[in-house]
C-alpha cells in the first residue's frame, strides 16, 4: 500500500510540469497557434526562477520572475507568428534553440559553470510543513505548485468552456473570419492565449528549478515535448490533457520504482516508454480530426 501511494505521489509530482505546460499549450492551440515552444517556456522559467531566487533569497520572487520569463518567451512567439506571420513551427524551433543557448550562456556568464547553478531554496514554508504532516495529502502534495497545478486544471477548463474569453479563444481557433464578423479582435485574443500559455510554462519551469533546488543546463529535458503530446493526446481539452499528463507521469514514476527494485529492465528502454506511448496513442486514436480548424494558419488569411 505504502509503495503504491509512493508511486502515485511520484506520478502526481512528475506530471506537475507537464500539466502546467500542457494547459498552456492547450490554450495556445485552441486559439489557433501551434505551440511546440513549451520546452523553451519551461527552461526559461526554470532559469529565471533559479537566478532571481538565488539573488534575492526569495523563492516567491523567483516564481514571479519565472512567470515573467515564460510570458516573455510566448510574447516573442506571438509577435513573430501573429504579426510577422512566421511559420509557427520554425519560430518554436528557434525559441527552443535560443532557450538552450541562453540557459548555458547564463550559467557560464553568471556562475562560471558549464552544467549547473547555485543552490536555491524551495517553496517549503512553515504553513506548508503543516500540510505535509497530514497523513495522505502530505505525501501526495510534495510542494505547493503540485497543488496549484491540480487546481489550475478546472480553472483552465472553466476559462475555455464557460467564459467570454474562452469562447473567443475557441472561436478564433476554429473560424477566425466568423469571429471577426462578430467584432472579435482575432490577434488580440491569440495574444491573450499565448501570454497565458507563457504564464503557465513559467510556473512549470519554476517547479522544475525549485524541485531540484538549482538550475541545470537543459533541465527541461524534453518535458515540453511530452506536454505537447499530452495536448494532442487530450484532444485539446484541458481535463483530458491532464489525464494524458498523469498517465505519462505514472509511467515515469513506475520506471523509477522499477529501477530501484532492480527487476532487470534496462533504464534506457523504460526511458523510451513515454515517447513510444505517445506515438502509439497518436497512431491509434488521435488523428488531428479534433484539432482547432484554424491551427497554424496566419490571420488575416490570404497573402
Amino acid at each position: 500500500m505504502g509503495e503504491l501511494l509512493a508511486v502515485l505521489a511520484g506520478a502526481l509530482r512528475i506530471s506537475t510540469p507537464y500539466t502546467l505546460a500542457a494547459l498552456g499549450g492547450a490554450l495556445s492551440e485552441r486559439s489557433g497557434v501551434v505551440n511546440i515552444a513549451l520546452e523553451a517556456g519551461l527552461l526559461m522559467g526554470a532559469l529565471a526562477h533559479a537566478v532571481v531566487a538565488h539573488a534575492s533569497g526569495s523563492p516567491w520572487l523567483g516564481l514571479l520572475a519565472a512567470m515573467a520569463a515564460g510570458v516573455a518567451v510566448m510574447a516573442l512567439h506571438a509577435a513573430l507568428c501573429l504579426h510577422a506571420r512566421a511559420n509557427h513551427i520554425i519560430v518554436a524551433v528557434g525559441l527552443n534553440l535560443l532557450a538552450v543557448g541562453t540557459g548555458r550562456f547564463a550559467l557560464k556568464a553568471l556562475y562560471n559553470s558549464a552544467a549547473n547553478g547555485p543552490r536555491v531554496d524551495g517553496f517549503e514554508t512553515t504553513w506548508w510543513h503543516a500540510v505535509q504532516e497530514l497523513p495522505v495529502a502530505g505525501t501526495v502534495a510534495g510542494t505547493p505548485l503540485v497543488l496549484v497545478a491540480i487546481l489550475l486544471v478546472p480553472a483552465v477548463a472553466f476559462l475555455v468552456d464557460r467564459t467570454v474569453l474562452g469562447l473567443r479563444i475557441r472561436a478564433v481557433g476554429q473560424h477566425p473570419a466568423a469571429a471577426e464578423t462578430q467584432g472579435v479582435n482575432v490577434l488580440r485574443v491569440r495574444w491573450a492565449a499565448l501570454l497565458l500559455c507563457g504564464l503557465l510554462c513559467g510556473l512549470g519551469g519554476a517547479y522544475l528549478a525549485a524541485d531540484q533546488h538549482q538550475f541545470t543546463q537543459g533541465m527541461s529535458a524534453g518535458r515540453g515535448f511530452i506536454a505537447v503530446s499530452a495536448v494532442v493526446f487530450g484532444q485539446w481539452r484541458p481535463a483530458r490533457v491532464w489525464v494524458g499528463c498523469l498517465l505519462f507521469g505514472l509511467l515515469e514514476s513506475l520506471q523509477i520504482s522499477l529501477q530501484s527494485s532492480s527487476v532487470g529492465i534496462p533504464g534506457q528502454l523504460v526511458q523510451m516508454l513515454p515517447y513510444a506511448m505517445t506515438l502509439v496513442v497518436l497512431a491509434l486514436a488521435a488523428s488531428r480530426a479534433n484539432a482547432p480548424r484554424a491551427l497554424g494558419q496566419p490571420w488575416p488569411a490570404g497573402r
Partner: peptide, 26 residues
C-alpha cells in the same frame, strides 16, 4: 567571452530567418 554565446546567436538567427521568411516569400 563564453563560447555558449554562439548557441544564443544561432537561436536568434533561426528566429530572424523565421520572422522574415514570409516577407522574403512575398
Amino acid at each position: 567571452v563564453p563560447r555558449e554565446l554562439v548557441l544564443v546567436l544561432q537561436g536568434a538567427v533561426v528566429l530572424v530567418l523565421g520572422g522574415t521568411g514570409p516577407l522574403v516569400d512575398a
